[in-house]
Design a protein around this nucleic acid. Structure first.
Lengths: 143, 143
DNA sequence: ATTGAAATTGAGAATCAATCTCATCAATAA
DNA sequence: TTATTGATGAGATTGATTCTCAATTTCAAT
């Protein structure tokens, strides 16, 4: 079993939950994804490749993947919550193009530091953050 | 007519839209708000104070207020989109407490500058951005 | 003031993501 | 084996938001 799978299994077991075949299917699907996805895209890809699995099961599994850090909520977009793999993925923020929907990932260490400073100032214990900059990418600016 | 109202009216007229009594009612309600609100809170407050107005009218008016810069989308929270007045309000970002729901506003000039730098790097034309840090406030950390 | 084109409104229906229900299954421990 | 507890599937439900459409209002041009 790969490390990520073990992490997931351990999380489940230590919380009195079970590592079921269905959850393994969802796990595999997530691992095979690169880039962003939403719950329904995930569900559809499973349906196409591995046969049936309830939509509810996918929705129910997602919070567990988030809890283990295998998946992260990324942005809200087009009315849906989008996710991304976060194991093996560095934290990053997003530039979202309103023209073509393209998402550019970036990371700025200094911004992160300054955020920590802000939290300290307010005695705020941060768990995570989301920075999304909306606008137009190079290509879309021309149109 | 106050300046904000004029801004709103001019925006409407110049876009072939009309400054109707209903939109004025929504305008007044927004102006009288301080802090964050969501579409339904806005609708309810109008109902209580000024009698009837369709929920759809409120929802339909919001994009126009956003377009004029009178209102800004602030955060998505508890399944709803939250808004805030932005005329007379400086841009700021948010610390969101997952314990009590409190929202602390902050602004860090250096973070803003660094964001501009990132955009420049990717030739990205930014319209707006949203930075939300989730965690626990001082009070909730103790529990 | 009247007309007509275009925008607006209200009320409820429709959408759509996300969550919940509940009866049935499966796994583990006693 | 049985009891307990968690998990699943399928569909119903929720709740925010958007849409529909007939009726009304606005405004510019008669």
């Amino acid at each position: 079993m790969e490390k990520e799978e073990l992490v997931f299994k351990n999380y489940l077991v230590s919380h009195g939950l079970k590592y079921t075949p269905e959850r393994k299917i969802v796990f595999d699907a997530i691992i095979s994804f690169s880039g962003h996805f939403d719950a329904d895209t995930l569900y559809e890809s499973i349906r196409r490749n591995k046969g049936k699995l309830s939509r509810a099961t996918v929705y129910r599994a997602l919070p567990h993947f988030i809890a283990t850090g295998i998946v992260k909520e990324s942005l809200r977009f087009e009315g849906r919550t989008h996710y991304e793999k976060s194991l093996g993925t560095e934290h990053h923020d997003h530039l979202v193009c309103l023209g073509c929907g393209k998402i550019i990932e970036f990371k700025d260490e200094k911004i992160e530091e300054l955020q920590n400073k802000v939290c300290k100032k307010y005695s705020f214990k941060a768990l995570d953050h989301k920075l999304g900059i909306r606008g137009y990418c190079k290509t879309c600016q021309k149109k």
